[in-house]
């Protein structure tokens, strides 16, 4: 089951790339389409941030993950590299969880 989902999603993601290389450019060149597709990641990534940090199933929760996210935010403000941001987030959450 899980592998079917992974394979279907993989195939879809691959086809999206292939279509770009194979399609006549005019199809997706409309400015509004370009703009919308370019902005979709901002909306989805932001949604994923809050869903992964503040929800558990259908419940809104506040736990060690929030502290980790806050620490990650500070690290990003200080222009920390990707891996360091993740380490800071994980370390902070583990610490807060240990204290609680």
């Amino acid at each position: 089951m899980i592998w079917t989902v992974v394979l279907v999603a993989s195939l879809c993601c691959y086809l999206l790339k292939y279509i770009g290389l194979a399609a006549p450019p005019a199809i997706l060149e409309r400015p509004a389409v370009r703009r919308a597709v370019g902005l979709v990641p901002a909306a989805l990534l932001a949604a994923l941030v809050v869903v992964q940090a503040f929800t558990d199933g259908s419940a809104l929760v506040l736990d060690a993950r929030a502290a980790g996210l806050g620490a990650a935010f500070l690290a990003l403000l200080l222009r920390a590299p990707f891996l360091l941001v993740l380490l800071v987030a994980g370390g902070t959450a583990a610490l807060v969880n240990g204290l609680a």
């Binding site: 079917t4 989902v5 999603a9 879809c12 999206l16 790339k17 770009g20 399609a23 997706l28 597709v37």
Partner: peptide, 24 residues
């Protein structure tokens, strides 16, 4: 599963635009 695949596809859609840029 459908929601998971749809999210992945929406995030991957920008690769189509990249492909259009790179095709030539």
């Amino acid at each position: 599963p459908v929601a998971a695949v749809a999210s992945a596809v929406l995030l991957g859609a920008r690769n189509t635009l990249y492909g259009l840029r790179l095709a030539a």
